[in-house]
Design a protein around this nucleic acid. Structure first.
Lengths: 250, 250
DNA sequence: TCAAAAGTGTTTGGTTTACACCCATGA
DNA sequence: TCATGGGTGTAAACCAAACACTTTTGA
């Protein structure tokens, strides 16, 4: 876009949009980044359109840079949503007209196919920022999310399902946690994503056996009770391990 | 399309196409369905465009019905290919002009985003049929495939990778084999997809333990050596088992 | 009658599960 | 000082890999 306050639709690929399910982890909870539409106050996933010289991956990372201030976000396509009746009218178009971002609604009130991405970010580093459609951007816990616009609930559900399935094949821990973290924190993350409790001792043994963590001398002080050790990921070994996956397979 | 001999581009979604990697299994080999372009004799994956009232899934199954004569094909999206330089010119457009399928090349010489699908079909039931671009449609073994048009090699590679990863989570055996098959045939299929040999006895034990097969009284006669039993899938149990995956996981 | 393929079974070793025990910390 | 959370260890159960033996078949 030339100026961020005005959308130039001649620079955009018609019929194609993208939506991102941005996951963060905070207070032992999985959070998702949502936008509140200016006029209707409905909630939506962050998304955007594709510039003529962009791949959708580049477009998605541009959108997320605008929404979070972060670069090099972990991003993964998971599904294209293309039901013919998913978006003959764009629920945000009136906001765009109101704000002067567009002069004409016709381009936006077409049928759109949306490429779904999920993204993993370090909660503490992201700075949620609304877009032209919205007046608010913030993190919501999964259980606090109810009705989203269009088929965004479906997109969210599918993203979660994919996240669970890919837990053993993607660098999920690495992207969702701060650089240094404790074993109980890592375990909580796994428990939250999987929706079930894991045995503390077996979890630790298994994790360490992958040889992807560096135990630091330092401990996490401040909390009550015994101070747990801090760890960081050994990126080299982590990368190798992910190629094979951590579990199962013939 | 109104008449199969003429493409009406006003009925098609701009900038969006789909390509299918259709897998079959025959002679202990994984086969892929390819088309030969009329003029250049280059090879390509079967693909097509999306009608205004179709989802891409519906479009893909329409395309595959035209290419194989089969309905209800197992189809799965695996990735969107959207590099901006993947298709500013469509290599088949001259064939379309030659054959009178289109009057004007401009619609087809745009940038296209392609949704990649992989499909699994019963080799013995498919009837390969060329499309408007091509004069030949047939099965090729993986090792016999060299250069394909555009980024179709990349699409094929990614499809294979996905197939391997999803082997334990998708009804792959069911869709690639005839209704009744022997245990050695099923094993060969797994070995071919995974690219490695498996122990005959352990494979059989493991497969049977999933409780997804019905052993029939009948044996497969005709071949040399001891006649192996025939099996069929127990669809009910197979469906249940796939929900959890057959292997690994926390 | 014999080589090759298929059915069935056993041994072994590693991995996962389910626990017990001790240590550190702040309320 | 004690409840709570964290670090470490171990026995039992389970599962997967490796391998032996027998049966059937057509050449």
């Amino acid at each position: 876009m030339n100026r961020s306050s005005h959308l130039d639709e001649t620079q955009l690929l018609k019929h194609i949009s993208l939506d991102c399910v941005v996951f963060g982890f905070h207070d032992s909870q999985l959070k998702v980044l949502l936008l509140r539409m200016k006029r209707t106050k409905d909630w939506a996933l962050p998304g955007g359109f594709v510039l003529l010289d962009e791949s959708i991956e580049i477009a998605a990372s541009r959108v997320l840079r605008e929404r979070t201030g972060l670069d090099h976000i972990f991003l993964k396509q998971f599904k294209v949503f293309s039901s013919p009746d998913r978006s003959n009218t764009n629920p945000g178009v009136q906001d765009l007209l109101d704000s002067g971002a567009i002069d004409d609604s016709s381009w936006f009130n077409q049928r759109f196919i949306s490429v779904g991405f999920y993204a993993l970010v370090d909660f503490s580093k992201a700075e949620p920022t609304p877009d032209l459609f919205s007046d608010l951007c913030h993190w919501k816990s999964l259980e606090d999310i109810d009705l989203l616009i269009l088929d965004h609930n479906q997109i969210l559900d599918k993203a979660l399902e994919t996240l669970r399935l890919q837990l053993n094949y993607q660098p999920i821990g690495y992207n969702l946690l701060p650089d240094r973290f404790t074993m109980p924190e890592l375990q909580k993350l796994y428990e939250t994503i999987l929706g079930k409790e894991l045995d503390r001792r077996n979890f630790q043994r298994k994790m360490l056996s992958y040889d992807i963590l560096c135990k630091l001398e330092e401990r996490k002080t401040g909390g009550a009770h015994k101070a747990p050790f801090l760890y960081e990921f050994n990126l080299e070994n982590y990368g190798k391990a992910l190629k094979h996956g951590f579990n199962g397979g013939w």
